[in-house]
Design a protein around this nucleic acid. Sequence first.
DNA 1: CTGTTAGCGCCTTCAT
DNA 2: ATGAAGGCGCTAACAG
Lengths: 335, 335
Amino acid sequence: MTNIKKVCELAGVSTATVSRTLKTPDLVTAKTREKVMKAVQEAGYRPNWLATSVKTGRANTIVVLVPNLVNPFFMRIIGGIEQAAQERGYTVLLCDTQGDSVRENAYASMVLTNRADGLIQLDHSFPFSANDAQLAESIPMVSVCERIQTEKKYPVVALDNYAAGRALAHHLVNYGHSRIAAIVGQIHSQIYKERLKGLKSVLQEEGISFDDSLIVGGSYSIETGIDSARQLLALDTPPTAMLCFNDDIAIGAMHEIHKQGLRVPDDISVVGFDNIKVSAFMNPPLTTIDQPAYDMGKKALDMLLNVIEGKSLIRNIEMLPFTLEERQSSGPVKR
Amino acid sequence: MTNIKKVCELAGVSTATVSRTLKTPDLVTAKTREKVMKAVQEAGYRPNWLATSVKTGRANTIVVLVPNLVNPFFMRIIGGIEQAAQERGYTVLLCDTQGDSVRENAYASMVLTNRADGLIQLDHSFPFSANDAQLAESIPMVSVCERIQTEKKYPVVALDNYAAGRALAHHLVNYGHSRIAAIVGQIHSQIYKERLKGLKSVLQEEGISFDDSLIVGGSYSIETGIDSARQLLALDTPPTAMLCFNDDIAIGAMHEIHKQGLRVPDDISVVGFDNIKVSAFMNPPLTTIDQPAYDMGKKALDMLLNVIEGKSLIRNIEMLPFTLEERQSSGPVKR
DNA sequence: CTGTTAGCGCCTTCAT
DNA sequence: ATGAAGGCGCTAACAG
């Protein structure tokens, strides 16, 4: 282990001078600086990050909790978080919770052991164990997409899911669809409520009745899309359009529809949420809601660091704009 | 900050006893243990991880360098790494290098500053800066998929890319294809050489000539697939099959082929590498080489920890088996 | 501008 | 079984 003392001996100065040369070179003579740098080079010295952090009390690290790393939508958010973190001198500790609360608790507790200074949650659960809950009250935490379900209102950056639900509903209604199914993701979530509310509000305004048996699904996976589509196609009067709560579901739904010998959009329209990369390259390309995932990540990190550094937040909830990407998976209803 | 001293006072014992109670409870009386645990609970004490690590000299952390986090194939590898790491008490610091060597250097240097104990590289570059190269000689490092291009031979877990190239080539030749294009990823890589060698060897054995103008591409993206397919379709005699070096490329190629009004596989067969999730749900589903990504990750972590903990490795290179997933994107050559 | 000194919070011999 | 004390490597206040 080559430590600061070795450098001292080589350069013939004190530990303080070495430390200063590296951290605040301006406070050191050009001559000593040179001397020290030469010794550093010679010894191959690198300051021990652990020691520095234990001294300053700051890890300059944040934890990001992701329900599923394989979802490219989350990865885009994380891209934004990482970029912004790097710019502000922070490191990201990425944690795939796999929806397992034990894992989630384990990772979240890193903020309690001074291993990280704050936390960004991409899921809607309060990530701490019952045992940690009290301590966790005061730690900096921000969520993206979903509001954290707990009493204290943590800052959140999200999409106007109600408006997005309405946008897709209008898109389909304008094409003449009146029997529209919803294949949803997590049930007990804000997203579920808001998007569905958006869909229903449009239908009501248009005087179209909605049947709760057209709500299927329950998780954000391709398999859910497949199973749900199969279920819907087996109905006496199948829907003419499927509104999927993410693109993975939509991909699964399209796959099943094709498998049954039907065509998208001629027989059935399919629309999604998120605009993940492959969506544009499906056959047919998928109509979807584009979320500004990268910007959401950036924004979330900015909010979190403001909390960590004690600055006040302008707003406790940031709503970002969405875009409806019209592609070829949706079209006029079949006569 | 609630530290070990506060707990001492509350429990009326020394710091040593508190430390022991938490780390090695067997060395403490049941009675004192109870007393201490009550104080810990009351104070809401959590040992400072930074302090513990600086003391023990071990971060119990490894760095994983990924060229592109959005690629689901890499995410599967990382899933395996994380699982194995968790089982052995290590944390993973995940770093998206974006192919930028500055970022790569920055992250890799964490191993030199005692922030991490070892490194897994998913790319083929030596991740340290010129300035760090000497120091880095002795640090534990393992690579997955690609061999690290440097003099010292680091352990690697990989696929038999030569054999996989041959398998796909045979698959296409058996369907009667004789004009087969290769859309490749990174050019200066082991993977490039081996897979191409596999393809060429089969063609030669079959007495089929190969023209280097049929090698196109240069990066592992959907866009590369699109551009390359366009380029190939514009040839005087376009190929009847496209062997893509990953599934993203294949997805792009299929998209462009469809866009030009041609059909897969009736007009052109397309095959890929990796077997990412969506590949099975494309229209048509993609024929591809399945790599045991999860196991590769697990294996890589095991090898790395063995190096870190000073155990000897059984072998310096681990070859894992692949599977050819035949689906509907490949078929008989058009007459 | 530089050196001395006192910790950061914790673990771990060495006594008792 | 427990406590006292030294030190991990580094930083920062205080002298000089």
